[in-house]
Every structure is written in C-alpha cells, then in structure tokens.
Design a protein around this nucleic acid. Structure first.
Lengths: 234, 234
DNA sequence: TTACAGATTTGATCGATGTCAAATTCAGAT
DNA sequence: ATCTGAATTTGACATCGATCAAATCTGTAA
C-alpha cells in the first residue's frame, strides 16, 4: 500500500478519473502489488491538445499508449494522400501494444482527435517485465486477445453490413437492453463516429437520415430511438 | 530428445511436412525441451475433406487450431444469409487462439476450403500451460501480436484500396523483390483469394482484367507480371 | 481423349458509398 | 445574446463493387 501511494505520487499529473480509467484497462486491472508498481513505473502521462501527432507510420516503436481521456485516431494514407481511419481509440483503449512482440516500427499514424491524456508505456521496459512476471504476461495476453477480437469484428462488420446497419449496431451497443424507447448521447463528434464505422462523414449523415424511417431522431449529439427492438431488425 | 521422439510417436498422423509447418508457427517455433513437449501433448491432429465445418458461431470454444495443410475459411452470415469471409487461413496460420483469454464462444464460422489437416489445441490445457511456463506465455503473446497486426492491416487495406490495388498488393507480396518480370502460381482457387481480399469472385476477376493494362497476365492459377515495379505504382 | 462438373469470366444492371460544393446548423468565445 | 468558424447536412454526381444470368474455361476422372 505504501508502494501504491508512492506510485501515485510519482505520477503527479494523473488525476482521479484518469487513474480509474487506467486501472480498468485489461493491461492493469488484474495486476496487484509489486507487478502493478513495476508496470506503473514504466509509465508516464502525456497530455496533448487536439490534432497533435502521437507517432507516424514507419517511426521506431518505442512506446505504446493507453487513452485516459479524449480520443485518438489511428489512420493510414494511400498513395494519393487520402486518409482512412483504422481505429478510433476511446478512454480505456490501448494502442500499438501489438508491437511488444510484433515488430519494431509503427504501422500507422496516430493523432489526437480532441484534447487528450495518454498513459505512455515504454515498450522495452514492459517487454522485460512481461518476461519476468507471469501476471504481467497474462495481462498482455488478455489485452491482445480482446483487441484482436474487436478488430476481427471490425473486418466482419465492414464486409457484412451497410452503412445504416453499422450505425444501427453502434446505437444498439450503447442502448439499454430492453426493447422500448431510448436516448443516448454521442461522446464525440460525428466525424469520429464516421471514422470508427469506416464511413465518410456524409455517408454517416445519410445513414442517420435513413434510420429516421425506423424511428431514430438525431439532434446534435443526442440520438433518440423510438423502438430499440425495431432497430435490431434492420 | 527422447521426449521429442516420444512426442512424435504419439502424433502418428503427423507427417514430415505437417510437422515442419507446425514447428514454424509463432506458437511453437520458439519453444524447446519440456515446454515444447507439453504443448505438443495438448495437441491432436484432425484431417477433414473439403467444405467441412470446424466450428460454428456461438459454440463453446474448447479448442483453437493451426492449419498444417489445406485452407480454412472464417466467415460470418448476415441477417439475409449472405456469407462474408473474414479471414482465409493458410498452412502455418493459427485461428481462434484469441479466445484463450478473450471469451468462451466462437465468434464466427470456420470451414475447410480444401482437404485440410489441422493441429487442434485444447484451449484449457494451453491456458494452464501459459500460466506455468514463461516461454509458452511469450509464444502466445508473439502469435497474438502478429495476428493483430495482420488483422489491422486488413482493415486498413479494405478501407484504403480499390479492388485492383488489393490484388496488386497481393501479387507483390508473393513476388521477388526486384523490379523486373516475375511469375507466380496461386496456391488456391481464385474463390479463396477473393474472400481473402474482401471481394466477390466476379470483382476479383474484373480486377485481374484491369491489371492487364499494367502488364499482368493470368492463365488459370499462373500469374505473370511484366514489370513488378510498374505494379507498385498502381 | 472425351465428357462433365465446377470454377471463372463476361455482360448487364443496380445499389451503395465516395467526392465536391453549397447550404445550414452548431458550439464556443466574446 | 450574438458572432464566427467549424461541423454537419444536403444535393448532384461519379465510381466502385455486388448481383444475377449466361457463356466459357479448367481440371479431373473415366
């Protein structure tokens, strides 16, 4: 416990909310005592304003990150300079951790999509820790597993569903489970939601208007669903 | 070494080629001695003819697999019953290993796309081993990392490139690095290549004919490339 | 070699989504 | 509350890729 107190002091920029987010990531949630302290000692906190580059494709990968607050956009460029989002990272998401053992260079660009606070983990330090401490290795495995599953689901979603279906799915993942009416508030700009679903912003907008026929009302960031069950049938 | 001999005997159905493939997977390539023996003892060999189901979406995940020979198609169905391939697994590929720590049920369907031999690993046994043996945990991490990277690349490829570009990329990954002419032979039906690239078979066929302008000739499974460098410019 | 079933290609068409430009709305700063 | 730049929506259009049907090709087995 003294160690924990020490650890918190050493990261003086970590506020309560950010610490709570960090402790719930697959990377840290199962760790206790010494392992937790050692992981935290490889970490530093980084705060960035909107649209700042975190890393670029091809750079040496010397750290991976966990989003504490704000959002991060991972994207690639094609030959013509067009950008395509690969993943939008929300608070609690970890990114580039696959490079712990998967390669030495970043495979894409990362930039903030809002004012953002990150936990930065030194790649080599965590690599070393994972080889020493069983529970850290296990935490890495859990994190990679979950991440891989969501990424495969993303491929399936892209290949299987139309734009309105993807939007409906997204809304449903944020709705209470019952079948009645519901109301949710987007936690970010529609811009980001579009990237998350692999759509151009205009296509997202049109998908929303298609869903109006199914009882979905959009005003700003607030989405009202007349009948959650009906949305499932899309 | 005696253990190794014993191990091989116990898997009497594993021929030389299959064993070589298995030993080169990220899962096993770094293991030696006792760890290797213990991993192999959780494995059994399964041979299946074409178009046989390996598992179905929603079933309890009690094993993961490595393709030794043949091909496996991972796919999902949408509401209308249309199938979309999520991944085509070739010899050396492992699938469903993300369920070691990522969940208890299969997330998609798996079926053979040719006569196929698989190494079947008992999920719980490997889970236990990974907690005991550091090098097994590390092998799991390596395998998951590489798999995650290729899956994220797949998302990027789907969202960033047109059909001819994807086909060109695929050809380039199989070509010698120099810029001159080259000839490759597809290791499977075009059917599977289409699924791998997220295309309908007709779209793959049209992509090939688009690439004729760039000096690509297709006859059966043989693809001739006039100028590898030119293909990169697509 | 021939015949056949399955694979692939081609043609015609349609629907979905990206792109660009203009109009409108929103949200933060004054 | 108003203003202003950014975000979003809408319209018009082009393009890509899916689908269905028909023609052709390929590989395999007799």
């Amino acid at each position: 416990m003294e160690e924990t107190a020490d650890m918190m002091n050493s990261n003086f920029k970590l506020n309560n909310r950010d610490r709570a987010v960090l402790m719930k990531t697959p990377f840290l949630t199962s760790l206790t005592g010494n392992s937790l302290v050692r992981m935290m000692s490889t970490m530093s906190v980084v705060s960035l304003t909107n649209r700042k580059s975190i890393f670029r494709e091809g750079e040496d990968a010397d750290a991976f990150y966990c989003v504490l607050s704000g959002y991060v956009r991972l994207y690639q460029l094609n030959r013509d300079g067009r950008e395509a989002d690969i993943r939008i990272c929300s608070p609690g998401d970890t990114f580039a951790e696959c490079l712990l053992y998967g390669g030495t260079k970043y495979h894409h660009h990362a930039q903030t999509a809002e004012a953002t606070t990150l936990a930065r983990f030194d790649m080599q330090a965590v690599r070393d820790l994972a080889e020493q401490e069983r529970d850290i290795a296990k935490a890495v495995i859990t994190s990679l597993s979950k991440h891989l599953i969501t990424t495969m689901d993303c491929v399936a979603n892209d290949r299987l569903h139309t734009a309105p279906q993807r939007v409906a799915n997204y809304i449903l993942t944020r709705c209470p489970v019952d079948g009645g009416p519901a109301s949710i508030r987007l936690p970010f700009q529609k811009n980001l939601l579009a990237g998350m679903l692999g759509l151009a912003p205009e296509a997202l907008s049109r998908a929303f208007s298609t869903l109006r026929r199914t009882g979905v009302t959009v005003r700003g960031r607030v989405i009202q669903v007349g009948d959650v069950q009906a949305l499932r049938e899309i």
